[in-house]
């Protein structure tokens, strides 16, 4: 997952206005909080995954907000966007 293409995409994302929403000042020492998906992601039975029914509009899109928090888990100096993406993948993969 650490291909050049992936890191170019991450850099592009970092330089965009979305960065300000996802990443707090002081990242990567300071950790991101929650994540957002567009379009909506639901369970196969049509219900919302846990703590993810809230929505917020950014950049003319209505994003689904996943209330996931990293208190006590973020290792400053080690963790970065890759770990954040891995955590997002893991959360979505749970299907809960």
């Amino acid at each position: 997952m650490c291909s050049n293409r992936a890191s170019r995409r991450i850099r592009k994302l970092l330089s965009s206005s979305i960065r300000r929403k996802i990443l707090p000042a002081g990242y990567p020492n300071s950790h991101p909080d929650m994540f957002w998906t567009y379009p909506d992601v639901k369970r196969t039975n049509g219900t919302w995954p846990a703590a993810s029914e809230h929505h917020a509009v950014y950049g003319n899109r209505n994003w689904q907000r996943w209330s996931r928090h990293y208190q006590g888990q973020w290792r400053a100096g080690i963790d970065n966007f890759r770990s954040y993406f891995a955590a997002v993948r893991h959360e979505i993969g749970k299907g809960l």
Partner: peptide
């Protein structure tokens, strides 16, 4: 070893201080 390696910084407190500053 940096201050992270020495356990002298906590990401939660950095995060809280950064959010308060902004």
């Amino acid at each position: 070893a940096c201050l992270n390696c020495r356990g002298r910084l906590l990401s939660e407190r950095i995060n809280a201080e950064a959010r308060r500053a902004v």
